[in-house]
Each structure stands twice: as C-alpha cells, then as structure tokens.
Design a protein around this nucleic acid. Structure first.
Length: 114
DNA sequence: AAGGTGACTAACA
DNA sequence: ATGTTAGCCACCT
C-alpha cells in the first residue's frame, strides 16, 4: 500500500458521521488540490473489510461518481441514507445537497487542534 | 522510463 | 443551464 493511499484513507476516516466530502476536498487536505482523481483511484483500491467510510466521498457536484465496481452506486446511496443524509434520485444518478452535508474543515480543527 | 488510465474538476461552447 | 474538452496527479503496464 502506497503512502499516498494510506493518507487518503486516514483523511476519509476523519469525515464525520452524517457528513460528506468531495474528492477534491480530500485531495486539498492532503496538500495536493489537483489530485482529486488519484483520491478516487485510492478509494477504488480500497480493501473490502476496511473501516474507511468511502461512501461519504462524492464528487464536487454532490453526485455519486462511481458506476459499478465491487459496490454499485445504490450501495453508496444506501449507506449515506443510513446516516441520515438525504439523497435525491435523478434519472441521471444520485445527488446530495452539498451546502447542507459537506464536511467543514473546522471539524478537523476540533479533532486535531494546532 | 514513458505512456496510458481514471470513484475528478474547472473552464468553455 | 447542460454537454464537451483539456489539465491533473499518482498508479499500472
């Protein structure tokens, strides 16, 4: 496991229950704001039994990005709704209200103060 | 080592 | 406001 992947996983673990984060946001928190794609790549390689809340990571438009891997998009939606997050279903896919559920970095400051 | 790939994004038409 | 296009960065072949 590459160090980068590990960092992505550790960061995703910090996303609080009931909130969501974007790939770009995770990348930015890892000091690589342009590495959003690699964040997704890291989650794609995520082991099955991991305790990483991968379902809380979505794209910048608030939609579910995954198409179909080990887990279908509906599985992610299911997990999100289980946390009390309202997921709107569209003909094109699923979407979450980012302005309402997007993770705020202040949460990190609360967990990891300087 | 070099080029291709993708759970992304922001910019354009 | 939707649909494409071109950068991006770490990983894989």
């Amino acid at each position: 496991m590459s160090d980068w992947y590990t960092r992505v996983y550790e960061m995703v673990k910090k996303v609080p229950h009931g909130s969501v984060a974007t790939y770009g946001q995770i990348a930015a928190l890892l000091s690589s704001p342009r590495a959003a794609r690699t964040v997704g790549t890291a989650l794609r390689h995520l082991p099955e039994g991991s305790d990483v809340p991968w379902h809380r990571v979505i794209n910048s438009t608030g939609a579910i990005s995954i198409q179909n891997f080990d887990h279908p998009a509906e599985e992610q939606v299911n997990l999100l709704m289980a946390e009390g997050i309202v997921v709107k279903r569209s003909d094109l896919g699923y979407a979450v209200d980012l302005s309402k559920y997007l993770w705020r970095k202040e949460t990190i400051d609360r967990e990891r103060p300087l």
